[in-house]
Design a protein around this nucleic acid. Sequence first.
DNA 1: GCGCCCCTACCCCACGCGGGGGATATTGGG
DNA 2: CCCAATATCCCCCGCGTGGGGTAGGGGCGC
Lengths: 213, 213
Amino acid sequence: MTTVLLVDDDALVRGGLRALLDAEPGLTVAGEASDGAAGVELARRLRPDVVVMDIRMPGRDGASATREIVSWAAPRPAVLVLTTFDLDDVVDDAISAGADGFLLKRATPDELVAGIRTVAAGDALLSPAVTRRLFRLHARRRPADDDVALTGREADVLRELAAGRTTTEIAGAMFISSETVRTHVKHLLAKLGARDRTQAVVWAYRSGFMDRA
Amino acid sequence: MTTVLLVDDDALVRGGLRALLDAEPGLTVAGEASDGAAGVELARRLRPDVVVMDIRMPGRDGASATREIVSWAAPRPAVLVLTTFDLDDVVDDAISAGADGFLLKRATPDELVAGIRTVAAGDALLSPAVTRRLFRLHARRRPADDDVALTGREADVLRELAAGRTTTEIAGAMFISSETVRTHVKHLLAKLGARDRTQAVVWAYRSGFMDRA
DNA sequence: GCGCCCCTACCCCACGCGGGGGATATTGGG
DNA sequence: CCCAATATCCCCCGCGTGGGGTAGGGGCGC
């Protein structure tokens, strides 16, 4: 049986989550708190398996509370942070606070249950270190990055650039002249706002382009 | 109810997993296959929510089967790859095959169940793109990458390069002459086996250097 | 004290690269 | 049907970059 502590300033949200989770076999809600300070205190007393933590709360916020809980000696509760994730600065706090997982508030009930089971089961699916890196990846996924409209060939060339290839090598690989490659490079540099191929490669890795491609 | 298809060449393993999963509320094993070809065929007929796929099998292996299944149009089964993950080359195949998740065979039953629920629930906890990058992070953690012994200043310069800065900018930021920056760049290129700064930046992102720094 | 590595700094040379042009052919949507 | 977008190819110019070598000062270990 997995015990869960709900920390959210909205009583209606807590009630909804409690009904949802208690109906789930293998899950039970051990307690509720309406702010970070009460959440930490209750987590200390109840020792739940998982703390579901809203990030935005009056008083002591979720990031601060998370930071404290994850600093406890094992076995400590796993912290699953709930967020609307609207480019909020507080998200960065949740990241650096070292939460074990985070979930969008628009997630489905099934997804929440799966998330709770995942963090409760430990890090077999994803290690904490990796999860932390993930947070960084997510935080970095700015909408602007997806707005860049590279043509098919430009995207091809960028992939080659991001593999560390030279103009001549790319020309050989793509069966076109190096002059054409140079043209494509010039165009994608302009679109990306990059001043040279190195900056284009940086963009490719940081924007998630290399993950999509 | 989440339906699962087991693909593993070992009948005993399949039997154990079936017993384990059928005992779990909300999960049911819809079928079993003993190799990749049979697995793909059965997945096509049964349309399970999740395919639990052993990576190492005689005949058509798990990576090849995974590659096919993930190429199907939505809604397609999610593929959870099972692996011993002992620095096996086949792991690279699983990565590039685009599996939705992967789990160590030494994972506990709880972890397997949590993993199945997670991939069945979709990408709310972790998006496919991020998962794919994760795989790369895991696969990439080769000892060789950690063996590269950059000096403190060389590492500083590499971080600046990986931010897309020019020699002159780096010199300004580090309060040294650009000639010195050039020397550091030359040295780190030699150590990394990179032919130019672009390849050094690629190495910085792919090796995990940018995650550690 | 002597070697060894690191950081600092400079030289020359060849060339790849980015910026700014222009040109032609094909494709597809208004 | 025409125009915009795309893909292909070519030119010149200036300079940043990489490869080679050289060198002094500082720290550290033997």
